[in-house]
Write a protein that binds this DNA or RNA. Structure first.
Lengths: 228, 228
DNA sequence: TTCGCTCTGTCAGGCAGGCGACAATCTCCA
DNA sequence: TGGAGATTGTCGCCTGCCTGACAGAGCGAA
């Protein structure tokens, strides 16, 4: 992949585009493009740290499977998103499993490359921690909604979050390419319940459902539902 | 409070005791002791950043209230625990409310003092980020258990976590001074359900219930229940 | 085109856990 | 010592969501 294309794609993300330019350069210099075949595992829970990743094309499933085989899908990370930074700080094992979804292209910066870079420029620790603070905020929101909000509101909220790439994509997408089952496991709901709520939203003309995708027709009303 | 007493108390915590000594010194030099009267609010959601805190005596409730008035209690932070670091990194508003529980004594380092300190020693950003990575890991565990584990296991797990101060207190406490209602709202359960599970545990001789406290009799069996 | 797979739509049944209610018990302070 | 407030223990009802099941629809490969 061309260096120009790569940089322009990463510049779409809030985090990367606001980094000091020298750090951007260093990151790109240390990075290697990596491709995943459909369903290929990048890492699993308990694996040792292996560095930082950015999604360039396709998407990556971040989740975990319980002893009973139930799956909790934390999120689907997509184009200008970075992930894998927690282990950079504490050197502890991975908290989640990561799988490529379809063909996807990643940017990878190895743990050692990052640590040498940070050794030379310790001030950059702050920038990388920024990535973690965003994730912590999102996780808090998630956790709170799970216990406090009614399911329909949680679903509405999540649709909006996905549409705007959890704050990374500025003109929010209107069409979300994701099966209802995946949405369900992100919300810790059954597929059936998820379908029921979506059908209801479709009846109100707020979304439109197609095979494997959800189209947001009325983001305004969706936002109203998400607050309740 | 005496400087010696203060340091010895902070040294009980994993995070502080593993910091480089110069950073420990700088933190202490920049810190001021602050006392909260029972129920006094330290900050609320949406407040601007106000620095970093450590609990010296008593405990602090970190939580949030929904529009419907339901309360989600994130955690009760106790003696050698530090909190409030997220806003240090991103300068965004507080994510939660913080209230003193009973009389409590805190150590406070103001945002500006911290930022000047970090400006002089940017390498310390890494140490502070460590605090955040711990919190992120704990929150992930929380989130996952909420959707994947049966309620009894979640309760058992939480009791153990509280007993060992979420990894900060090494010889775990046997007696937890907390009303069942607070435990309930940490678990997103009703008080009644919580009581029912606790009673069941008491029947098995795993815990002993008293007024306003829970005594852990058999941590081993409790740990077994937490895995299921 | 046809087969197989994935995804959607929708039923009925069951139950875990929420909610309201109320009594009993404990603690603390006046 | 007594009374107020907080906490616990335990009902019963009810709802929201899960489970299982199955039909139909869309999609891609042979």
């Amino acid at each position: 992949m061309d260096m120009q294309v790569l940089r322009s794609r990463l510049d779409k993300g809030q985090w990367f585009s606001h980094l000091p330019v020298p750090l951007q350069d260093s990151l790109l210099a240390a990075a290697r493009v990596r491709r995943l075949s459909p369903g290929q595992r990048l890492f699993k829970r308990g694996d040792p740290p292996c560095g930082l990743y950015a999604v360039l094309e396709g998407s990556v499933r971040i989740g975990a499977v319980s002893e009973q085989g139930k799956e909790a899908l934390l999120s689907l990370v997509e184009s200008p998103h970075w992930f894998g930074e927690i282990c950079l700080f504490d050197g502890q094992p991975r908290t989640h499993d990561a799988f490529g979804l379809g063909h996807c292209v990643l940017l990878h910066i190895s743990q050692t490359a990052l640590l040498t870079l940070l050794d030379e420029q310790p001030a950059y620790w702050r920038q990388l921690a920024l990535l973690m603070s965003q994730k912590l905020r999102l996780t808090f929101i998630n956790l709170e909604q799970l216990s406090l909000m009614p399911t329909a509101a949680r679903l509405a909220h999540r649709l909006l979050m996905i549409a705007e790439g959890y704050g990374e994509i500025d003109p929010p997408r209107r069409v979300l390419q994701l099966p209802q089952e995946q949405l369900a496991s992100m919300l810790s709901l059954s597929r059936q319940t998820t379908n029921q709520i979506l059908k209801d939203l479709q009846g109100q003309g707020i979304v439109n459902l197609k095979y494997g995708e959800i189209e947001i027709l009325d983001a305004q009303r969706l936002r109203m539902l998400a607050i309740i």
